[in-house]
Design a protein around this nucleic acid. Structure first.
Lengths: 233, 233
DNA sequence: AAGTGGTCTAGACCACTTG
DNA sequence: AAGTGGTCTAGACCACTTG
């Protein structure tokens, strides 16, 4: 039941990177060095390096060596993912801090975006998501109560709004825009970054069969987050 | 200059699939069969099968074999668009300013990203695109000369690099990441924004059938540009 | 010249699936 | 029992990069 040797080597390299012993741009041990360090054949050490390169963790170049790639997390533009899953999948710990979780009357803009009347009660949450204790996303979410009447009763310590909502009102459609903004003092405080530092702001409207489910404004520190996508034509 | 043997095997399998000799669900030859058919070692035949599986062409299962996968859904949710067309479509006027348009030897990073050798000549352009006279995108583009040998002869006043490149080397694949950065003094000057204002930076690598075509770094003023997408599930 | 990654061989033992 | 893919070895020659 032991894991393959190439997997052990991958894990060792990965943890050196997450621990900061290897920084982006650093050269990692060569195939031959790893083979001798871990007492495996070069082909096995090579496989570890190749797979890490495939995963975007390393860059390799003939004659030069293998180098640590930009380590910022990258999530896909083309799919809607649960931030907690994303973090867990990277081998990190997700935690979050619920700043607000309440109902309030819709102002005209929110009402319009959710397809409700101004003044109708809507649900609103403000949550900071953390990766290994460091803030990675501020989620400001406005929810259509017709689509998720029990939203307020949810405890978001173990389940994200995104996960809950897609369970009660399966996603059929989403609209989003991505922009670069400067952190105002609120965002700066919540994300633990300097005021006026660059942030990636994703504004997303999600739909289920019966209409608009929620509006999310997701703000990420620019130096700790990237959005990535891979397209085939 | 001959291609590796595993590539030959991949091509053979691929063409059998496109010609219809192998249909989705069909089992392809096993590692051992391919090894003997092509007179290579099992490891080499194996590599061909592994890479095709990685690319989504095959599905493999221990004890069972390798099977042709179902035709993949085209998930081109985010599309690569030509900035000039985009602007024109909005009813505005596109213009551009070519800051640089030259050839130079590749440093090791560019070489790695383009799949070339360090020191090989590559093409490079720096262009500012304007919408109704106001800068909207700074395009720093590095081009693989093998894919577009006449790149330097192009006049970008009426045709963007993107349009030219997709004409001479049709896009088959693209990889991109999106991040929020602060304008440095160069970018600030080119985009006519204040230094340290937020910008959206898109790093895109485009591929045609034969390999990497170009690497583009597209920088947009955060307050004049957004990326949007609409998804259906 | 010494080191790097890229390709390749001819073996080996294993876990898994089917007949 | 025979065949499949999964892991691994200990070699080899090559192209490429740097000093």
């Amino acid at each position: 039941m032991s894991s393959p040797r190439y997997a052990t080597i991958k894990e060792a390299l990965r943890s050196q990177i997450t621990q900061g012993l290897l920084a982006p741009g650093d050269r990692v041990s060569s195939e031959n060095q790893l083979a001798s360090e871990f007492s495996v054949s070069r082909m096995t050490a090579r496989r570890a390096l190749l797979e890490l390169a495939e995963e975007g963790v390393l860059l390799r170049s003939q004659g030069l060596g293998s180098f640590v790639a930009d380590t910022r997390p990258m999530s896909s533009v083309t799919q809607i993912r649960n931030i907690a899953e994303e973090i867990t999948q990277r081998g990190h710990r997700h935690s979050c801090c619920v700043l607000q979780h309440t109902e309030l009357p819709a102002d005209s803009l929110s009402a319009m975006q959710l397809g409700l009347n101004t003044g109708e009660l809507i649900f609103h949450s403000d949550i900071v998501h953390m990766e290994d204790g460091l803030p990675i996303q501020h989620e400001s979410r406005t929810v259509n109560p017709r689509m998720a009447p029990d939203y307020l009763a949810q405890d978001f310590a173990n389940n994200t709004p995104s996960a809950y909502l897609s369970a009660v009102a399966p996603l059929t459609e989403a609209e989003q825009s991505v922009e670069a903004i400067l952190a105002d003092s609120d965002i700066a405080k919540n994300l633990q970054v300097k005021k006026r530092s660059p942030c990636l702001k994703i504004t997303r409207r999600t739909f289920s069969e019966k209409g608009v489910v929620s509006l999310a404004i997701l703000t990420h520190p620019g130096d700790r987050y990237r959005l990535g996508s891979h397209m085939n034509f």
